[in-house]
């Protein structure tokens, strides 16, 4: 009797979370889907005619979409490469016996807690500015021409800034994983005369597999939606050189007020994110069974 009672109550307790998340996900998503089939611009009020897939056609054949699609791939791929490579190196280093490990950890972790607008503006002005930035001073000092980061290599500059923000996350997750490694296995490998590289390749790397997958998937989810860093540094420019899909949809929706086109873009972004999400869900689903 108590169990049926608690079952009902358990459902009641779930109710608010489920209803709120359902409302948050389904209602706006359906609206976006609906808008994406309309000729709907806030600047030209009309009867918002149904135009079928025309918005999708315009969005997908727009050269700006192709550019920003590849920019998104480069941004996500570049940051993943840097943060995973650096993260594995840092995790192994921080796993060694060193003096003052806690202080080192604190310093490595710090960038993750800096809000995106601050890190982007600090890098843009105080480090990467071609005249007054620290990198420019350094270039002058060693006698080379300073790079104008956001004019010459806008996308790469943003990749560098975002990598700095996400390196701590990758390092921390991988360090947590390395610390759960069975030490006896390594000692046995030592006794068998294994060198550091074969130990890394045959023992450490396989052990890290799950954590690496987690880092890739979680970072990808967040990196697909990079926005603030682009807004405050390049505003997507010059041209579309540093525009990603998120930023493109933002300009279309809220700067050009093209609700129909922006919605079609939004749906495309949802489809892209879903492809990543399916893999992430599989990974986490497996863990739930363990």
């Amino acid at each position: 009797m108590a169990t049926t009672n608690s079952r009902t109550l358990a459902r009641l307790m779930l109710f608010p979370s489920v209803v709120l998340l359902l409302a948050w996900m389904l209602v706006p998503l359906c609206m976006t889907l609906y808008f994406s089939f309309l000729d709907y611009n806030l600047l030209t009020p009309g009867n918002n005619e149904f135009i079928g897939f025309l918005n999708y056609e315009f969005f997908l054949t727009d050269p700006a979409f192709i550019t920003s699609f590849f920019n998104t791939l480069l941004l996500v791929g570049g940051v993943l490469l840097i943060t995973l490579g650096g993260g594995i190196g840092l995790a192994i280093l921080l796993d060694q016996a060193i003096w003052g490990r806690n202080y080192v950890r604190i310093m490595v972790l710090a960038p993750f807690f800096v809000m995106p607008t601050v890190s982007a503006l600090v890098w843009k002005n105080m480090l990467m500015n071609p005249v007054n930035g620290l990198f420019a001073h350094f270039a002058d000092w060693i006698g080379v021409t300073p790079i104008d980061f956001f004019a010459q290599i806008p996308l790469l500059s943003i990749i560098i800034i975002v990598s700095w923000q996400w390196l701590p996350f990758a390092a921390l997750i991988l360090l947590t994983s390395i610390q759960s490694l069975d030490r006896e296995q390594l000692e046995a490998a030592d006794l068998d005369g294994a060198g550091p590289f074969s130990k890394f390749y045959y023992i450490v790397l396989p052990h890290l597999g799950r954590a690496i997958t987690a880092v890739i998937l979680i970072e990808t989810i967040f990196l697909l939606s990079i926005f603030a860093e682009i807004l405050v540094t390049t505003s997507g420019g010059p041209g579309y050189e540093s525009t990603n899909i998120t930023y493109l949809i933002y300009t279309q929706s809220l700067l050009q007020f093209d609700v129909g086109g922006g919605s079609a873009g939004g749906i495309v972004a949802v489809i892209i994110a879903n492809i990543v999400a399916i893999f992430l869900m599989r990974l986490i689903g497996k863990n739930l069974e363990d």
Binding site: L21, M25, G266, I272, A273
Partner: peptide
């Protein structure tokens, strides 16, 4: 388990997918 996974999936919805409706609402 399915419910947990579903809740997680809402986190993966890119914000631009709901940008316009949320803004208009």
């Amino acid at each position: 388990k399915n419910l947990l996974m579903w809740m997680l999936s809402t986190k993966m919805l890119p914000p631009v997918g709901v940008l316009i409706p949320i803004y208009l609402l």
